[in-house]
Design a binder for these strands. Structure first.
Lengths: 222, 222
DNA sequence: CATGTTCTTAAACAAACGTTTGATTCAAGC
DNA sequence: GCTTGAATCAAACGTTTGTTTAAGAACATG
């Protein structure tokens, strides 16, 4: 391999593709370096460990997305006449950057699944790192949602934000699975339709009037 | 080990606890048999392979839940005056059986995380098995939702059912994580509150008026 | 009591894992 | 032209993986 082709990025490219296809534990450094067409030892030379590769791949995948989320939220708030955003606009800022990835060249579609997988991967060493990456996004969007949903108790708001993340994560996983979304060509029309459905759905949930269940149903759980 | 204590079930108990805590690939047969206090070879004697253990654990976990889902749907449909169920009732029948597990003795709380994990685990050999287990539930509930949501196109309904599953799966994962749900004691009040929030949220999404986004936002995705 | 089956056990198997080593190759600086 | 440092390479490190083996213990049935 020529020196000019950045080994580090070849490794990260392969890591994204393979991790998203087989999970972190399902990918060995040998299969990784074979896919990346680099030597086995070079991953330790450049990163130091497999954990570090996972973190680096995750960071390269999620950082631009979160940056765009914040930028989009800023832009929409600036465009709004009184600075007041509706729920659907906030959701659009939250969801659209990930869907933009799913739309792109089919090579980069694996980004989406990788991100979704890391939500559910039980790697202990990832949890603090993960929280760091999302702290600002969560804070900013919680504020935006609070403005868009006045009167909703904070605790309920946080629950609903978790539900929203659940919808997104699961959709991202499903997207990459067996293309059972529309009869679709898996291209931009697809991504737009899914995004629109998702925003509608979650907005409906966010706007629902909070309240308890009927006593009869509460009994049924006990 | 005495013969009376069923080795097979001890293995499945340990499998549930460990798989839900560390994922399938994160659990070796050695750690599994150590936790179960049985011999390493007995897992092959009783099950034949690790894959078979995973399937067996999954089946023992999910079958009673799905059975109860169908029974609850039957019961609610019978109780309803005209046989017509509201969205919230259908959602209750879908979600409450899993939440019932999350409430139970903290030992069996791991059930919930195991099920949630298997949604996102990329094991290829599980996918057809998984689909088999859920086929009838999905068919019955799609019909129930279709009756509760007349006029909603089938394609949109199926998308929204996927969203609903996403909410449930993600919530189940979060439940077992760091108990960041309420200041809570993790007991029945907790589970009831979460279930109520979930049903409200998803019902809001299911009932949302379908439609496209504004052209400006569609551009932003392209 | 002997027989046959079911189950458990310790030990070993080959393969794959993440990681480390030491030699080699290349490009740039003096 | 020699040196220096970064980067690559093949080979091996010691563990751990899922799986298999063969012998022994515990039970039921005759």
């Amino acid at each position: 391999m020529p020196r000019t082709a950045d080994t580090k990025e070849q490794i990260l490219d392969a890591a994204e593709a393979l991790f998203s296809a087989h999970g972190i534990e399902g990918v060995s450094l040998r299969s990784l370096t074979k896919e990346a067409k680099v030597n086995l030892a070079s991953v330790h030379y450049h990163f130091g460990s497999k954990e570090a590769v996972v973190k680096a791949a995750f960071a390269r995948c999620i950082r631009p997305v979160n940056r765009e989320r914040l930028a989009l939220l800023d832009q929409l708030e600036k465009e709004a006449a009184d600075g007041h955003l509706g729920v659907e606009a906030v959701l659009f800022a939250l969801f659209s950057p990930t869907m933009k990835l799913a739309r792109g060249s089919s090579e980069r579609q694996s980004f989406v699944r990788l991100c979704a997988r890391l939500y559910s991967e039980p790697a202990d060493y990832l949890e603090p790192f993960f929280e760091d990456e999302f702290r600002e996004v969560m804070k900013r969007f919680e504020a935006a949602f609070a403005r868009a949903l006045p009167g909703l108790p904070q605790h309920e708001l946080r629950s609903r934000m978790r539900f929203a993340v659940g919808v997104m994560a699961h959709t991202m996983l499903d997207c990459g699975r067996t293309h059972n979304w529309t009869a679709g060509k898996g291209d931009e029309t697809d991504a737009q339709a899914i995004l629109a459905s998702m925003v509608r759905f979650v907005a409906g949930g966010m706007l629902a009037r909070p309240g308890r269940m009927t006593p009869a149903r509460e009994e049924a759980v006990a």
